[in-house]
């Protein structure tokens, strides 16, 4: 199994990178965050990957969801590159990185190319 799609996200592994795309959904709460992390871990099984996270359609995670994603959401994530295509999404990701402080190395980019470049050192040979 190399691909998962559920009501919250779509994710697959390609060339040593886990591509994670948020889908639009209501009520981004702790329960949603737990399901999102569970889906990613079940796809990765026990291997750590760099994660390219497309947040262009992300909703508004509440406090519990952000806290969970910052800590438990970093399990088996070597590094995370957010791809945002708008001012608001970029600032949301910035807020998350600065305030909630995810434990894996994390940065925000406006293009997928730049995000992949950031993740390159974390890709296993």
């Amino acid at each position: 199994m190399n691909y998962i799609k559920n009501e919250y996200s779509e994710l697959f592994i390609q060339d040593g990178v886990l591509f994670f795309k948020y889908l639009p959904f209501e009520n981004f709460d702790l329960a949603a965050a737990e399901k999102i992390v569970a889906a990613r871990l079940s796809l990765q099984r026990e291997i750590a990957f760099p994660v390219l996270c497309d947040v262009r359609q992300i909703g508004k995670p509440n406090l519990s969801a952000r806290r969970f994603l910052a800590v438990q959401g970093s399990v088996l994530a070597k590094a995370v590159a957010y791809v945002a295509n708008s001012y608001s999404k970029e600032k949301l990701a910035d807020f998350f990185i600065t305030v909630d402080q995810p434990t894996a190395p994390t940065a925000v980019f406006s293009t997928q190319e730049a995000a992949l470049q950031f993740l390159k050192p974390y890709v296993s040979e």
Binding site: V37, A38, L41, S42, E46, Q72, V75
Partner: peptide
């Protein structure tokens, strides 16, 4: 507590051996 919470995620969602 935080280490246990991380371990919880691994136990429930991955086949990683418990000793690992």
């Amino acid at each position: 507590e935080k280490r246990l919470e991380m371990a919880y995620q691994m136990i429930v969602n991955t086949p990683t051996p418990l000793s690992v």
